[in-house]
Design a protein around this nucleic acid. Structure first.
Lengths: 228, 228
DNA sequence: ACAAAAGTGTTTTACATACACCCATGG
DNA sequence: CCATGGGTGTATGTAAAACACTTTTGT
């Protein structure tokens, strides 16, 4: 048959957004050589499950969250990336609204926590590389897919979207032009809800109109906003 | 340790362009259940080699060609994609100028041939799916990366580039606007060579200026031509 | 009354699009 | 001289970019 002893794993770069910060979900290893080190949630694929299923399962087991958006990112297969034995890892990016899903004390990991992208701890394996690739993908993606909405609450003030873009792209955006552009797509619904003002004028809350987005997409509409 | 019996393979969708046709390189299986069926070049990864190395090796062994451009495409891991046992395959796309590289009678495959994308034979495994994903990627890519030049000869008339785009995108393009746009990038060098005219006026031959392209890229230049 | 964030239009500029005739060669 | 593909410029439309003041609330 085939003479090969490579193991297959999946890892997920889970993005969240809260308090004007872009966050990544990390777990602390419970066992083994890398015990106590922080790492991406993930693990070995079972013989009978698909790759996507494996990611969702590991996320559930290690952190208790369920991704609303999941996309294959890249496969990392350097022979030396794991010192124990050879592991090929199929990495994913996932999006979650941290406020909608509580982290659970998990059985498989010692701890699970959100970290600001700008101050990540030292990571096990090549997980720092995986995160860099994931971040790049997120930055590119946000320009031509309305993935931003997966990171926000159901009802949100427009400024949340603005801040999200500014945080991810690490860049100032012209508020008027941005708003004009996004609203012109007709994929946002203005609701009659109002944000409870902290300070300053209270804001109307918006809601992503998925139905309309899907309809428009079928008609050949492409979400695109140039901010690179 | 890890209880898993999954094998890891690589497959390549190798694109070529000749006679105004977009081609894909396929091999005919020599042994096993799928003997005589056409399939993508590829095979199992060796324990000690990286994924990229595995692709290049398989390409060499099965077809004799060397890709000038190689990029990871997607990883296919459906548990049922191979009927013998579970195989996770990391698919790549590769670009080649068919005229620059002769197909070799190979040891590992019964036959290797270029097929017009528009008339592919029935393929083994899920290779038809892999090709579809690869084609989509190529179509997207050609709009924002000058990969077209990897498919053309070193010296080529401008019309070759036009035709390449029209063939890949399966779409008419305005000759004047296209030429204007591409030339405005300053990544083509006009040479003093002239095409030996078949019929009609002979054409100046151009040459891709890689040095200039890399320099411009560093300065923040993005190749982009909207033809989707 | 002031601090803080929300909300809103117009002008300028650049790029995409549409479009048709002459040129150089071979047969 | 005719058929074939090569080479070229302008006018128009559309979308991006630049830009600052007024409104509403809490303190």
């Amino acid at each position: 048959m085939v003479d090969q002893s490579i193991k297959v794993a999946v890892d997920a770069v889970v993005f969240g957004y809260s308090n004007n910060e872009l966050k990544i979900l990390l777990i602390q290893q419970k066992y083994g050589e890398t015990k106590d080190q922080w790492a991406l949630p993930g693990g070995f694929v079972k013989d009978s499950e698909s790759l996507d299923e494996a990611v969702q399962r590991e996320l559930r087991e290690e952190t208790g969250v369920k991704a609303t958006y999941l996309e294959q990112l890249y496969t990392f297969g350097n022979p030396k990336r794991d010192s124990r034995f050879r592991v090929v890892s199929i990495a994913y990016i996932a999006l979650i609204n941290p406020k909608n899903s509580q982290l659970e004390a998990s059985t498989d990991a010692k701890d699970a926590k959100w970290f600001d992208v700008k101050s990540l701890p030292k990571l096990a394996y090549d997980h720092q590389t995986i995160i860099s690739v994931g971040l790049e993908r997120l930055k590119a993606k946000i320009n031509y897919q309305p993935i931003g909405f997966d990171l926000l609450a159901t009802y949100f003030p427009f400024s949340d979207l603005e801040n999200l873009y500014q945080t991810i792209l690490d860049k100032k955006i012209d508020r008027r032009n941005f708003r004009k552009k996004i609203l012109s797509f007709n994929i946002l619904e203005e609701t009659d809800k109002i944000s409870q003002a902290g300070s300053g004028r209270p804001a109307k809350l918006f809601k992503f109109n998925l139905t309309n987005y899907k309809r428009l997409e079928k008609q050949g509409f492409h979400f695109e906003i140039k901010l690179v």
